[in-house]
């Protein structure tokens, strides 16, 4: 019997901006099947036995790294982590050196987190291995964007014409960018909300609405994605204080109540409790914030699986 033939016709996952809506839907559909695997007594399948994955985290991120590692273990890959300490990054290893080392180790897939926007893209062009962007600078965090989409779809089957507002530091957020591209491709209406100092130029050109006031955003939103806020970037404070931020933009039960309709609240974690998100919201009975974490593993399994398939197809295509 000949199976249906669909897949990601690409070597790498670098961002949602370059994916088609169909590719995004394929990943989300596949993730649904992997989500079921996570509820099995034995949460491991032999699908990618023999695939070697290197997790290159040039920037600390315990959660994303764990989620990728778990996804890989569930698929029976051989995974190795490169402990790239911040000090060695400061000394400066060029991406070409990294690429040559990885190639020499005959790795099939690289998961890369880097403080520089575009670093995974550069690496991807230098190596034959698949590259999965696990967050690059202020550019994209595609698997986070996908797991957010997945979580939103669990509540609203179809995101078309749903109003999603991303709240926080849009300028420096890779999560915001991946959300914007993914949501627009799935037909959602996307808005952003935050202090003007945290909104980058050109948002309307991207097709994004700007809400200066959080109350206006909540009045129209079906879903909000609340970003983790940082007072300073490179020593420069971007707003006067976290207390002021909380009072102007913090998501509280009262603000949600005033919106007058139900709003699904997402947060990529880790939460600054009672700054961008009130604990009472984060811990509310219907909160999906922990589902996001579980969904993240399923989405990363789907991405790993679908990309690895393209390698297998190109490399060993005998019937």
């Amino acid at each position: 019997m000949i199976a249906e033939s669909t897949g990601l016709a690409r070597k790498d996952l670098l961002g949602l901006e370059e994916l088609t809506a169909e590719e995004i839907r394929l990943i989300l559909r596949t993730a649904r099947e992997f989500r079921e695997v996570l509820d099995r007594p034995i949460k491991k399948v032999p699908a990618l036995r023999g695939l070697t994955v290197a997790n290159l985290f040039f920037e600390n991120s315990t959660r994303t790294k764990m989620s990728f590692e778990l996804a890989q273990k569930r698929l029976s890959t051989d995974s190795i982590g490169f402990a790239v300490s911040t000090s060695s990054v400061k000394k400066g290893e060029s991406l070409r050196d990294t690429a040559q080392n990885i190639e020499a180790m005959r790795v099939d897939m690289i998961v890369m987190r880097h403080s520089e926007s575009g670093a995974p893209r550069r690496l991807a062009e230098m190596v034959d291995a698949h590259v999965v962007n696990a967050g690059d600078g202020c550019h994209e965090h595609p698997t986070q964007g996908l797991l957010d989409l997945y979580t939103m779809q669990e509540r609203f089957d179809d995101l078309r014409d749903r109003r999603v507002v991303i709240i926080g530091d849009i300028a420096h957020s890779r999560v915001a960018r991946s959300n914007i591209h993914g949501l627009l491709k799935l037909g959602a209406k996307v808005g952003v909300c935050g202090p003007p100092t945290l909104l980058p130029m050109g948002l309307p050109e991207l097709g994004v609405d700007v809400y200066p006031h959080v109350e206006d955003a909540l009045a129209e939103a079906d879903i909000i994605n609340v970003l983790r806020i940082q007072l300073e970037r490179m020593g420069v404070p971007l707003f006067p204080s976290t207390r002021e931020y909380a009072s102007l933009f913090g998501i509280t039960p009262e603000r949600l109540e005033n919106a007058g309709h139900e709003i699904l609240v997402l947060h990529p974690g880790p939460i600054n409790r009672n700054v961008e998100l009130d604990s009472r919201v984060a811990d509310a009975p219907g909160s999906v914030i922990l589902s996001q974490v579980t969904n993240g593993v399923a989405v990363r399994m789907a991405v790993t699986y679908l990309l690895a398939k393209t390698r297998l197809e190109a490399g060993h295509g005998a019937l």
Binding site: S117, G118, C138, H139, R177, L206
Partner: peptide
């Protein structure tokens, strides 16, 4: 340069 391209690419403007 600051603008929509820098925003898309996530590069400092």
């Amino acid at each position: 340069n600051e603008g929509v391209i820098a925003t898309r690419l996530g590069l400092g403007a």
